[in-house]
């Protein structure tokens, strides 16, 4: 029986009057690769961002390895944890973004090393060795000392993934990591993610690449209007959607 890494219960998030997440429940087992799909505005990215507190949330709990993320909850009272505590918890998850968000004033290696040195308090040479190992893993051994401005989009995204994964997170979050890439560069990034999946990394991927979701994920979550509308095995879901909404979504998406 696999261990539950992430347990989301009754997650609610509002922007003023607008409720983006209306009670999401989701448990993730160690080693699972979960693709989160849904049309824009369905709340999939927001849910991902709540997991590492890039978004505040107003209701429900998220626990990672049994540890409550972001808030102390006692009965009905909830209090935001200290900035320092939240920073520590954020380091437990890794995240890759649609826009890469590499630090432009640092080389590829320095981007990867920053968290190792500042957060994990490693010595520089140690951090450098880890950075080189991971940059090699994502196929960028020859680009270690290049600045982001000297790299293609696909290369930048691979550095960003190396930067996240080098921190040895319990869980990786991918937020539409191929959406900003030219079509011919998508493959190299997906290849890296496939490699991580093969290593047994637990991952949540918000994606528009239906073919990829189908191939790499062990479970698919379809979100619609702030709730999980349907979830299950990709082989089942893509071929025989149970809900009308999913059937409609698949029809308009690129999967066929």
């Amino acid at each position: 029986m696999a261990k539950t890494i992430l347990d989301i219960r009754g997650l609610r998030k509002t922007y003023g009057q607008h409720e983006v997440l209306k009670g999401v429940d989701c448990a993730v087992q160690e080693g699972e690769v979960i693709a989160i799909i849904g049309s824009s505005g369905s709340g999939k990215t927001t849910m991902l961002r709540c997991i590492n507190m890039l978004e505040e949330f107003q209701g429900g709990t998220i626990s990672l390895d049994g540890e409550e993320i972001g808030y102390h909850v006692e009965g009905t009272a909830r209090r935001r944890k200290s900035e320092k505590e939240i920073a520590r918890q954020r380091a437990l998850t890794g995240m890759a973004f649609q826009q890469f968000n590499l630090f432009p004033h640092m080389t590829a290696a320095e981007n990867v090393m920053l968290g190792l040195i500042k957060v994990k308090k490693m010595a520089k040479f140690e951090a450098r060795a880890i950075a080189e190992t991971w940059l090699d893993r994502v196929g960028l051994a020859s680009r270690v000392d290049h600045y982001p401005g000297q790299l293609s989009g696909g290369q930048q995204q691979r550095v960003a993934i190396a930067r996240a994964i080098a921190m040895a997170p319990r869980l990786m979050l991918f937020d539409e990591v191929t959406s900003a890439l030219d079509p011919e560069l998508v493959g190299e990034v997906l290849q890296v993610i496939k490699g991580l999946a093969a290593d047994g990394m637990t991952m949540l991927l918000v994606t528009h690449e239906m073919r990829f979701a189908y191939e790499v994920s062990s479970r698919v979550i379809f979100m619609n209007q702030g709730v999980i509308c349907e979830e299950g095995n990709p082989k089942e879901m893509f071929v025989r959607p149970k809900t009308e909404r999913l059937a409609e979504f698949l029809k308009t998406s690129s999967f066929n």
């Binding site: 900035e83 920073a87 954020r90 380091a91 437990l92 973004f97 590499l102």
Partner: peptide, 13 residues
């Protein structure tokens, strides 16, 4: 995104 990426790797403010 720069601040978000920094937060995501666990940097303090």
């Amino acid at each position: 995104g720069q601040t978000e990426a920094a937060k995501a790797i666990g940097l303090t403010f």
